[in-house]
């Protein structure tokens, strides 16, 4: 199949594409799910991260 003799290789070629398709389908199904309010701890975390990176520079 596809010029490839070993079914193991055909399988992994197909699985690579299937895994990508799984990612696409999963992402689209859950496109609008999982939104959360940004809490104070998230903002504090981001501020500290920003300061630390700027310090490092």
């Amino acid at each position: 199949m596809w010029g490839i003799e070993d079914p193991g290789i055909v399988a992994c070629y197909a699985l690579c594409i299937a895994a990508s398709v799984l990612c696409v389908v999963y992402g689209f199904i859950n496109w609008n799910r999982g939104d959360v309010l940004v809490k104070k701890e998230d903002v504090d975390w981001a501020k500290e991260e920003k300061e630390e990176i700027e310090d490092a520079l």
């Binding site: 990508s20 496109w31 999982g34």
Partner: peptide, 13 residues
């Protein structure tokens, strides 16, 4: 949020 991750899966894959 998880939403960002869910959407990122599409491009990541």
């Amino acid at each position: 949020s998880r939403k960002s991750l869910n959407r990122a899966v599409v491009v990541g894959g």
